[in-house]
Design a protein around this nucleic acid. Structure first.
Length: 656
RNA sequence: GCAUCCGUAGCUCAACUGGAUAGAGCAUCGGUCUUCGGAACCGAGGGUUGGGGGUUCGAAUCCCUCCGGGUGUACCA
């Protein structure tokens, strides 16, 4: 049980005298921000005093007199307006540390009321290479799954692959027209992705071509508006101000449209120089239509296209699987969009018969309170949309797993879609489970714009991983060369460590950010050897093992109960208490699904360990007894770090 | 226009959901140590939490308003 819960238990009956519902009062027990206010503080005397019109300090005194904190706290103080500051009893802390040491779960008790939770994350389109946009969903989703599972919940992970959309029409069309049989035989995945890119390139050309006149027209109307605004006279200051603001934003728009047309012009010049490409453009003028046609044929069950789909799918899955293997991520299920294809008609029928959906402008719509636009579940041409698939997915999951909660780890730009989806699901009858859009911000480049290559393409995920590991490798080699020869890592070890640090750094950088905010991607920062980074935390672990090696200490071979644990030094005490708060850190995460609370905890733990390391020599401790005691603290620190990082999908090494 | 998220130290970000003197990390400056792994530790400076108003014992956090930004907004996913 967490320290917080232990203390809460002592206060529950006492606080029941002051309110019908004690929960809000108990919620006012929290860790103190500053050590001088003790370890925990209870802040409920002020509101109670206010309500009962009594001096809060008097209320605090009464609570303190009533509560029994024997064996738990050694000091209770009333401070300021009525804060009750609690200092944990040292014997209690030592006994807790010992039981954590003896526990595989490091003192974290499984949650008493486990929930069935589905986590829907990653969800890439299979026909195209994964890119930078998939990192956050993948890393955050995986980490939340691991954390919830560790806390005892019944977690089901499901990768909702995009395996049924236009991208397949693209590779089918590409395969029929551009495939190189030999290359395909030799390396199907590579050839398919080449084909995909080529079709994408052709389609881009026509889209760009089509956008050119539209841009020019837009530019004209913008310029007209500017002229109009500039000549207009304003009745009052406010109107003038507003006009100035409009003018400014118009001019910004003009600049960006002009930029776009200029880069388009460049683009057309360079493509014109590519004669093969130009020839293909000539031959495949109707590619956009053709691709849609291939997609439609697939959906209608055309034998040839279905056969191709069946052939391509395993290859596409391999491609994605390779990335997951590198990232050390697994899913319980991979029910992609194709899995729901046959159910969509029934879903729509059900909406019709239940009278939840109605026709509007030719499309079948679900109108929802509080939303301007309806959710469309069937297009005018009869085709289904991703909202239809998402509804079918909800039904399928409810039937199969009966979850208490469903988490969608998806980009914040889709929040409108999910708000509607959840509202529609409730209207449909699924009001029980807690649907939650676990949204996250965009990955930005160092220029503060969405992370792209210089030419404006999205950045491939594999390249990103490679680069992170390469940069880590350089750093590892540098540090390694400075070491005395006897302590150097072999080149294989360096490679392994580079992988652990590179991928760990990448994940940590992502997870340590508040998930809802955009974040700036920087190799330099994610691999920094100091600061709030994976390498710093991983290094703390390696330092512990440095001590163990030198001191011939074998973790897990000690008789913990026979060893006396001493926490006389404040650094030892602070470290010990931090270690005991692992469970608190984990359960805090679940209130808003914020993994950054765990990175924050591990970073603080590492800092406290560094401080302890400095002030409390282990191998050179004054007595053998103290040395053994400190070994145990080191051991628990290493284990909490290892466990904590593993819940973030990050590994550690004993030497680095 | 409407919806939604955001604005915190020079920079990148926290702040346990309303608690005490708003914290870290970079960067800057100063200090420690002939190192149990210096990839370290200790300390300093740096803030009107975008502005203004309100709610209350108490506000970065809740409400109103203004300023500045991101994102989404009927048949793409």
């Amino acid at each position: 049980m967490s320290l917080l819960s232990e203390i809460k238990n002592r206060f529950t009956s006492v606080l029941a005298d002051y309110a019908d519902d004690v929960e809000p009062l108990l919620a006012m027990l929290k860790p103190s921000q500053d050590e001088k206010f003790g370890d925990y503080q209870l802040n409920c005397a002020m509101p109670i005093g206010k309500k009962s019109k009594r001096p809060p300090r008097e209320v605090a005194g009464e609570i303190v007199a009533k509560v029994d904190l024997d064996g738990l706290c050694e000091k209770v103080e009333i401070a300021g307006p009525g804060f009750i500051n609690l200092t944990l009893d040292k014997n209690f802390v030592t006994s807790q540390v010992k039981s954590a040491l003896a526990d595989e779960r490091l003192g974290v008790t499984p949650c008493p009321n486990p929930q069935t939770v589905i986590i829907d994350f990653s969800s890439p389109n299979v026909a195209k290479p994964m890119h930078v946009g998939h990192i956050r969903s993948t890393v955050i989703g995986d980490s939340l799954a691991k954390i919830m599972r560790f806390l005892g919940h019944n977690v089901i992970t499901d990768n909702h692959l995009g395996d049924w959309g236009t991208q397949f029409g693209m590779i089918i069309y590409g395969y029929k027209n551009f495939a190189n049989a030999e290359k395909y035989e030799a390396a199907p995945v590579l050839e398919l992705s080449t084909i995909y890119r080529y079709v994408r390139r052709l389609m881009d050309y026509f889209e760009k071509k089509a956008s050119q006149p539209r841009l020019e027209a837009e530019l004209l109307t913008l310029k007209e508006k500017v002229a109009e605004l500039e000549s207009a006279e304003h009745e009052n200051e406010k109107a003038a101000k507003k006009a100035a603001k409009n003018l400014k934003s118009l001019k910004n728009k003009i600049a960006s449209v002009e930029g776009a047309t200029a880069s388009l012009a460049d683009y057309f010049v360079t493509t014109a120089n590519d004669s093969d490409f130009s020839n293909d453009l000539e031959k495949h003028k109707d590619i956009a239509q053709a691709v849609l046609l291939e997609t439609a044929k697939l959906h209608e069950g055309d034998a040839e296209n279905v056969a191709l789909w069946n052939e391509f799918m395993p290859h596409c899955q391999d491609e994605i699987q390779r990335v997951y293997a590198r990232l050390d991520i697994e899913f319980d299920h991979t029910f992609g969009e194709s899995h729901y294809h046959s159910m969509l008609g029934d879903v729509v029928e059900d909406f019709k018969t239940k009278g939840i959906a109605e026709e509007s402008e030719g499309a079948l719509c679900v109108f929802l309170d509080g939303f301007e636009a309806p959710m469309i579940i069937q297009k005018r041409d009869g085709a289904f949309l991703y909202s239809t698939t998402d509804l079918a997915t909800i039904k399928f999951r409810m039937d199969k797993w009966k979850p208490d909660a469903v988490l969608y780890v998806v980009d914040h730009r889709q929040s409108d879609h999910f708000d509607k989806l959840f509202a529609a699901a409730r209207k449909w009858g699924y009001s029980g489970p807690d649907f939650f859009h676990c949204s996250f911000g965009t990955v930005m480049g160092e220029d503060g714009k969405p992370y792209k290559t210089r030419s404006g393409d999205t950045i491939g995920l594999e390249g990103l991983l490679n680069r992170a590991v390469e940069e880590a490798h350089t750093l590892v080699n540098e540090v390694n060369e400075k070491r005395p020869e006897a302590e150097r890592l072999t080149s294989d070890e360096c490679k392994d460590v580079a992988n652990v640090i590179g991928l760990g750094g990448l994940k940590y950088a992502d997870l340590s950010q508040h998930r809802s905010s955009d974040y700036v991607f920087s190799y330099e920062k994610m691999l920094a050897l100091k600061g709030d980074t994976a390498p710093y935390v991983q290094y703390s672990y390696a330092r512990v093992y440095g001590i163990f090696r030198k001191g011939d200490f074998e973790p897990n071979t000690q008789d913990v109960s026979a060893t006396k644990l001493m926490l006389e030094n404040p650094a030892e005490r602070s470290l010990a208490i931090k270690l005991l708060r692992f469970e608190e850190a984990l359960s805090d995460i679940l209130t808003e699904y914020k993994p950054n609370l765990l990175t924050g905890y591990l970073f603080e733990l590492s800092q406290l360990f560094a401080s302890f390391f400095e002030q409390c020599p282990v191998l050179k401790a004054e007595t053998e007894e103290l040395k053994q005691s400190r070994f145990l603290l080191c051991d628990l620190t290493a284990r909490v770090i290892k466990q904590g990082l593993s819940l973030l999908g990050i590994q550690v090494r004993q030497k680095m």
